[in-house]
Design a protein around this nucleic acid. Structure first.
Lengths: 109, 109
DNA sequence: GGCACGTGCTAACTTCTCTTGGCATGTGCT
DNA sequence: AGCACATGCCAAGAGAAGTTAGCACGTGCC
């Protein structure tokens, strides 16, 4: 679990990741339903697996979800995803505090 | 001022708007410095006015900043921007709550 | 008039993101 | 062997976003 405040770059990454209807739904469904594997999730959301996997990768890269690969009783490899209990407070002040750690391009990084 | 929780679409818009180093810096600078006009802000951030104006428009469209056009003592028209005191709580639960109001494409909107 | 400083717009280019479709792998069952 | 269901990856096209450069306008001052 992460307790320290996010750096500017991390914040940009998290926000950019969450700023997408598909990914937002993934987080929402996982938050409500606990956990799910890829194909199941794809059916539930009505999107293709290829598309879902791309979004899951981004969510994982941003630290918003985590995955465990498990072998089902039938011997099938299934990748289960669940949400990370993140909490980001977004206010003008919190953003101002993140600016000094922003390297993402621009002036006085 | 806005008290009701944002809809899914609003949330996507706000996050997408904030998920940009330039715009994040604008909010940070305005949060710290109070208010500033366009050219001043552009110099402070080290970016062109044209670029800044595009970002300011998006920030305004997302309701994160507001503008007042004022005439300086020398008769020059100057547009002052300031931050809106927004507060967005970002957690798995808050996102799950926003899903039903997500129309932005996808399945069972 | 010419210069410095303010605003605002748009056309065009570049770059990134999203999305699809195909193909590869592996298991269990009939 | 052939089908159902699971994962994973990549190439390519379509679309959105970021960025630049140039032009328009107006005011005050020398």
């Amino acid at each position: 679990m992460k307790t320290s405040p996010p750096t500017g770059d991390e914040l940009v990454l998290v926000l950019a990741t969450l700023a997408n209807p598909h990914r937002m739904r993934v987080v929402g469904v996982l938050a409500a339903g606990g956990r799910a594997y890829v194909s199941q999730l794809a059916r539930e959301l009505g999107i293709s697996r290829a598309l879902l996997q791309v979004h899951l990768k981004k969510l994982e890269a941003a630290g918003l979800v985590s995955a465990q690969l498990e072998i089902s009783p039938e011997g099938k490899a299934m990748k289960f995803y669940e949400v990370t209990p993140f909490a980001v407070h977004l206010t003008p002040a919190s953003i101002a505090a993140a600016i000094p750690t922003l390297t993402g391009k621009g002036a006085d990084g």
